[in-house]
């Protein structure tokens, strides 16, 4: 069951602050995207990759508060990490955000967008 208004303090802070929201444009930048037409959720992940590591990361999102909060939690932590190590754990997101079970699909959408971005990194050193 989802009860709007029962969001955790973590979700509230991340939703309001949305750190690293935005887009990246440049020669070392890649985009990964995923869309769920049923819910209208649209996730776009931007990575700037230098020597196999994430130099900068951003996201654009149209989605529920949990989806926005999940990206605001994940994306800043990617900066400095090897691209090959990037991953999304839906279980971890559920735990940290205290998210209801029905939001799993939204978190898997973020994983899809990240995979697409990582896949687009091929050839970037």
């Amino acid at each position: 069951m989802t009860h709007e208004g029962a969001y955790s303090a973590v979700v509230e802070r991340l939703f309001m602050e949305t750190p690293c929201a935005g887009a990246l444009v440049g020669p070392e930048c890649v985009i990964g995207e995923a869309v769920d037409r049923l819910t209208g959720t649209h996730v776009r992940v931007h990575l700037q990759v230098h020597q196999g590591h994430v130099a900068q990361a951003r996201y654009q999102v149209r989605g529920c508060p949990y989806t926005i909060a999940a990206l605001a939690f994940l994306v800043p932590a990617w900066v400095g990490s090897p691209v090959a190590s990037l991953q999304v754990s839906a279980d971890q997101l559920h735990r940290i955000l205290d998210a209801p079970a029905d939001r799993r699909g939204r978190f898997l959408l973020i994983e899809d967008a990240l995979r697409a971005a990582v896949g687009a990194c091929t050839g970037i050193t």
Partner: peptide, 11 residues
């Protein structure tokens, strides 16, 4: 147009 309804209400 172009916003998620739940996010709008939460905002």
């Amino acid at each position: 147009v172009g916003v998620d309804g739940e996010a709008l209400r939460y905002a």
